[in-house]
Design a protein around this nucleic acid. Structure first.
Lengths: 236, 236
DNA sequence: CGGCTGTTTGATAATAATCAACTGGCGTGG
DNA sequence: CCACGCCAGTTGATTATTATCAAACAGCCG
């Protein structure tokens, strides 16, 4: 068979495929995934209120999800990078409660949900895997709620950077040097802080030698100390 | 058949059973549910780190889930009332990331997860329903994150009371008068506020005629205004 | 009755939001 | 090509909100 076609499987590392999946079934799974959707910075993948049809897999680039409540309060609910799947919050009510917006040039694959559910009746472990992904998301949200209700600004920024660091590490990039794809405003929006507070925390972390920042270029200098700080119970 | 046995089906209103489910299948579903687990105030249903085996359905009473991070920071991640199912966050890692503790005398039914997954291969729509429940939880967590990062103390308390109110209404109790099963400390812990702040907000809401409080007995006097307040963008 | 816990209230301190000003980079249009 | 305007980011001053510390009080149970 054509090696090229198999060289970039969508789902090999996407947590959707059960670990024991055979090649045939992996192909079945990938067959329902629509490769499409090239987005540029600021483009919407879907908008809050749109009918829910699909989950999305980030192939490259990054996105944010934003929700606006009845009173017009906006909030970034998540950032998503390559290999991550998102859109889960739309299932329940049949429409997305968030908008998804590209932070840079981004490629997304679409996973039609009804086809995925059909397939999960045939591929053993697939629906289990789906549940695990949602469960994981719930656990991450718990961590986020703890961060929002308990940590001061420095600790929030530290936790945020460590989170990104782990993401990049898992994807084979440097865990210590990376480029942020979001603005300070977006970071603040995500972490529940004003822009100015985000900026000051970056400066403070830099002054103490924990990180080195130049615009969006970020370097972690003292990983251990950053971990301690991110845990709370310690201040700079 | 014995009317008594069917008079209190576990799952009729628990969102787990697909809406179209026939009586036979409802019985199958209920057959795997273990009725047991009577808890008294302060009793643990499970502890953080315990192996994940089951979801739990609250039959009567109420519980809280509490998580402790590595640094010893504690946080209440949720309150659960009759007809609610919880324990989802344990699936992913195979152990519960929270402890579940009864707030009062409480009866819980256990739903062994592997049996539930087995059954979901036979009962159409069951695994779909499971996904919907998780999706709903994720959406609720989003709202909670918005609350924690954007609302002031009064609005948080207002939102909290409205949330409880809706719960009681859905369960056939008064939406305007109810008894809180949690302490002020626990409310603060859940909402990311100090006890004193919770107390002051209750007092302030009462002074403005929105609610009437007497210890844990709570009455909503101005539902509309409470909604406005809970939305943010408005202050007392 | 006395000790415990949970709640309330007051005074003060700390943190982050807000308001304001300034900088540097970038793209556009004269 | 330069000037201008715009946006993102930073820094400073001030304000507001909430946490913290402290004290008093109520209810409950042994």
């Amino acid at each position: 068979m054509n090696q090229m076609l198999k060289s970039q499987p969508y789902c090999k590392n996407c947590r959707l495929a059960p670990p024991t999946l055979g090649d045939d079934q992996l192909q079945e799974l990938e067959a329902i995934i629509k490769p499409g959707h090239l987005l540029h910075k600021g483009d919407y993948l879907f908008r809050q209120g749109d009918a829910f049809h699909s989950l999305y897999l980030v192939r490259s680039g990054s996105l944010k999800t934003v929700t606006t409540n009845e009173q017009g309060l906006e909030k970034i609910t998540g950032f998503y990078y390559a290999t991550e799947i998102f859109g889960f919050s739309g299932m329940d009510e049949g429409s997305y409660p968030v908008s998804a917006i590209a932070l840079e040039s981004t490629l997304c694959s679409e996973i039609p949900f009804d086809q995925l559910e059909q397939l999960s009746k045939q591929i053993p472990g697939l629906s289990h895997q789906l549940l695990l992904m949602l469960s994981r998301k719930i656990r991450e949200d718990q961590q986020m709620k703890l961060l929002l209700s308990r940590l001061n600004s420095d600790s929030r920024i530290a936790a945020f950077l460590l989170n990104l660091s782990a993401h990049f590490r898992d994807r084979g990039f440097s865990a210590l040097r990376f480029r942020l794809s979001m603005s300070r405003t977006e970071i603040g929006d995500y972490l529940g802080l004003a822009v100015e507070t985000v900026s000051r925390s970056f400066t403070r972390l830099q002054k103490h030698g924990l990180i080195k920042v130049n615009g969006r270029e970020t370097e972690i200098l003292d990983f251990t100390e950053l971990c301690v700080l991110a845990g709370g119970e310690v201040e700079l």
